[in-house]
Design a binder for these strands. Structure first.
Lengths: 337, 337
DNA sequence: TTGTAGGCGTTATCAA
DNA sequence: TTGATAACGCCTACAA
């Protein structure tokens, strides 16, 4: 925090005003002074103080993202990629990204959102892992804070964001499994309050139905969406009297855990049992066997979300406020290739 | 951004000053007024404006972390876990975490660090993936900005941070491989300018030496530390006239890619070839076969780093400024169990 | 084309 | 124990 705008002004025997406007490319500044100011500012390594600018402009040039982090052990490449996308897009517009992690639907989460909003710390917020009934979206709408979300919640609020068509994807996936001859198909979800869990489960059911397969409630289990959780949930499934011959997992890391459990049970994944994921993280392609999955372009989705949000907070017209993406079925060896 | 401190003051017919100090628990405020102020503030949902507070206090209550993101496709669970740790620790102290992603050692990186520092956007910065000669650490020291780093660089600057003893870890690992009968041991590193690459490579060499194995330069390759990169680098190794019978990888995701390549070459990992990682990410335990690795407690390291930094910026005495951690060798099936 | 002055919401100094 | 008042660094009507 070195030179201030006063320093630059003093050095040039100009007023603060002129310096300020020269740097902001106002057109009522003589070209010669403008050049001089810009050169001097650069030479003096002048950078406008963030806090002062924020206070005055009443905006922060910062967008926020709160990680729905369940636990200490949480580590899904999904989030690395998502954050990288948000941050990259923000950088382009000279915005910053504020990040925090907090257990979903907890008291701490509520407090954090409140603090960020009421202290004016961010101009807008990106929400993901939307819940069926999501107080976050309601809260942000009420407070008039710009926000976009990945997956819409069921409430009728106007929605801006990106939605991946999990439902159709799952139907396609189940069809694929049925074609490969897998009939006893289990579903391994996450928290049932999650929109993605709901959508994927519905797609799973619809898929079964159209394949003429009945859905055994015993074959529906839930995990915490970590590989550890997937491992344990799979153990439960495989210990059943009549275990499933395929497991459809809510995401890739869960599936990686499930494959591990299957191997430990002496099953050859892809032949004795089919296992699928959702996300298309890099590691899924290198898993053993490579994982059949519904690929969603996480990085690109994150960039699009950030872009929409940035347009909103900059008052620019947002061309598209709802983007729907169809996940792509990547067939790999974990379902027989 | 609703009620300000003035609103609260007006409502109570008190001065702004008194309200401010009541809320900050100064002891020269009557207990009765303090209670009244606190209650009213809460009722009015008053939250101090961040920008104003920052401007006045000359601190931001924010720490920063710049992800060394190589590319769009980058997605290492290491970073999710690292960020979660930083963020959790920051939350405890009511600090925020500012995150950005930028290619390492690029012009953009330099500009970003400058901007953050000179605009006074953060009180301190966490650095990881230190380079052997790291301008970031020099720059931060010069500018007098508080910072901690994971892995110290070779320069003699005073260092505060956490260091994982990669060198000793690798020696132990090589010893393990040699015991298991693997003799033709390859090393798959990352960028050679990275401190961790240097340390791990040196440990590898030392390990080979003490096991009486000569190091064939052909068996030393580098990747970009992604699973994709690991996959390709392994293909190069396996295409050699005399391919190695073990591959020591710089991190887990690389190793996961390498295992994939090995399987494609018809090799049974753990029997025909030994493969090892470094990190101890959750997925490593669920890889096929489960990956032998040097486990470092990423989440806990991140918390410790953040904690040290927070103490530094709060002016608290830092008990321990250098923490050395010995990674733990987890022997799994990828080296024969 | 440039300068003056007021204020964004807080906190800190000093006097009452 | 409380209250004026002056910054913090910047932006922007408005005046010159």
């Amino acid at each position: 925090m070195h030179s201030t705008i006063r320093d630059v002004a003093r050095r040039l025997h100009l007023s603060i005003t002129t310096v300020s406007r020269a740097l902001d490319n106002y057109d009522d500044v003589a070209e010669s002074t403008r050049k001089l100011v810009v050169a001097t500012a650069r030479e003096m390594a002048y950078v406008p103080n963030r806090a002062a600018r924020q206070l005055r402009r009443r905006r922060t040039d910062t967008i926020g993202y709160i990680l729905p982090a369940d636990s200490a052990g949480f580590a899904d490449p999904f989030f690395s990629e998502f954050i990288a996308g948000l941050s990259d897009e923000a950088s382009v517009c000279h915005f910053d990204l504020l990040v925090s992690a907090v257990p979903p639907d907890s008291k701490a989460e509520k407090e954090l959102y409140k603090r960020w909003v009421q202290a004016g710390k961010v101009d807008g917020i990106i929400v993901n892992r939307s819940r069926l009934s999501d107080w976050r979206l309601r809260f942000l709408a009420e407070q008039g804070v710009a926000h976009v979300s990945m997956e819409r919640s069921l409430s009728r609020l106007s929605f801006a964001g990106v939605e991946v068509d999990s439902f159709s994807g799952m139907i396609e996936l189940i069809e694929h499994l049925a074609e490969r001859g897998f009939k006893r198909i289990a579903y391994m979800g996450g928290l049932p309050i999650l929109k993605i869990d709901h959508d994927r489960f519905c797609g799973y059911q619809a898929g079964l139905e159209s394949a003429g397969i009945v859905c055994d409630p015993k074959w529906v289990v839930h995990s915490d969406m970590t590989s550890e959780g997937g491992y344990h949930a799979a153990e439960t499934l495989l210990a059943l009297a009549v275990p499933p011959t395929a497991i459809v997992c809510i995401n890739d890391v869960t599936a990686i855990g499930a494959m591990h459990a299957a191997r430990e049970h002496g099953l050859m994944v892809g032949r004795d049992i089919g296992i699928t994921g959702f996300d298309g993280i890099a590691d899924a392609a290198h898993a053993s066997p490579p994982l059949t999955t519904l690929d969603q372009p996480i990085y690109s989705i994150a960039r699009q979300l950030a872009n929409m949000l940035l347009n909103m907070v900059s008052g620019k017209a947002v061309e598209k406020t709802k983007i729907k993406i169809r996940p792509k079925l990547l067939i790999r060896a974990s379902t027989g290739g």
